[in-house]
């Protein structure tokens, strides 16, 4: 009995220390989340307006002069996959990868992973990797986004890929984050939310000409899309981690409760037994 009690006590201690860690992680994620959400919210209107505008332009473009508006001849797909640097974030990373798998089935793909987990995953699966330069999502700055955008533009112009997609986790609410893939190049892949490609009949005046406009605007558009998607993904990661750690803390609390109940019962039983033994010994003479 005594040995059993000791084991339970140790178990309680170990669960308690785990709970301390999960609780701390939950608090850290919650406080970081507030900042990240603000950043993500700030960049959302830019992303929305930019996509709207480009959809209008791509729909209205009939003269297909820029390489970015044409569908590429190459049947290879490049996916930019934004995942987290660390685990312990519930299903954040695995949901994204599962989604990627169903999304890319039967396609000839290459990936540009952003985030350590993303690099690890695709290396493990032997998926060809375009560049590993941007492995840490926490360290990606706006100027890094511009370098990625330039890389993508060059690769697309050289016809290394026919389509470029961006895969990230959308922040729907504090409780729900959904993996998403959105086309970024060519511009003719951009579709309305209802799936229709807009056909715009009105003429648009380009200055100096459509090719120059597209060639200067597209790299900036890519950088903007990347930057805001990264912000949204980071907010999603933190929200997922907070929820996961909250659940872990709750579970640990429950375990401690059950274990302490068991411990107290065992303690009482051992005391009762001792008393019975003493009384029995005293009555003997």
């Amino acid at each position: 009995m005594a040995a059993n009690m000791k084991a339970v006590k140790l178990r309680i201690k170990s669960v308690q220390s785990t709970m301390q860690i999960t609780k701390a992680m939950q608090l850290v994620a919650a406080s970081k989340l507030r900042k990240a959400k603000e950043k993500a919210d700030n960049s959302k209107p830019y992303l929305g307006t930019l996509l709207d505008t480009l959809r209008d332009l791509a729909g209205g473009n009939h003269d297909f002069q820029s390489p970015y508006t044409k569908v590429g001849k190459n049947d290879k797909w490049l996916y930019v996959v934004i995942a987290g640097d660390r685990g312990l974030a519930g299903g954040y990373n695995s949901n994204l990868f599962k989604f990627m798998e169903s999304e890319t089935k039967g396609r000839d793909i290459e990936v540009l992973p952003i985030g350590k987990k993303s690099v690890e995953y695709f290396k493990h699966r032997n998926v060809p990797i375009f560049t590993e330069e941007f492995s840490e999502v926490a360290k990606v700055t706006i100027s890094d986004c511009f370098s990625v955008a330039r890389l993508l533009c060059d690769a697309y112009k050289e016809e290394k890929f026919g389509h470029i997609f961006l895969c990230y986790t959308d922040f729907v609410s504090m409780m729900s984050q959904v993996p998403k893939a959105s086309p970024i190049l060519p511009l003719s892949d951009l579709k309305d939310p209802d799936g229709e490609v807009k056909k715009n009949k009105s003429l648009i005046l380009y200055e100096p000409d459509s090719e120059t406009v597209f060639n200067t605007v597209v790299p900036e558009y890519l950088a903007g899309v990347l930057y805001s998607s990264i912000n949204i993904s980071v907010a999603s990661e933190l929200a997922a981690r907070r929820t996961a750690m909250e659940a872990a803390t709750d579970n640990a609390e429950e375990m401690i409760e059950t274990l302490s109940l068991y411990y107290n019962r065992a303690r009482q039983a051992s005391i009762t037994q001792e008393i019975t033994e003493i009384v029995a010994g005293a009555e003997e003479p």
């Binding site: 009105s202 005046l205 380009y206 200055e207 100096p208 406009v213 605007v217």
Partner: peptide, 17 residues
């Protein structure tokens, strides 16, 4: 990219960098 531009009301559809 092409110099200074001023946009007034009722401008035609237009796009530039």
């Amino acid at each position: 990219v092409d110099g200074d531009v001023e946009i007034l009301a009722r401008h035609t559809n237009y796009c530039t960098g």
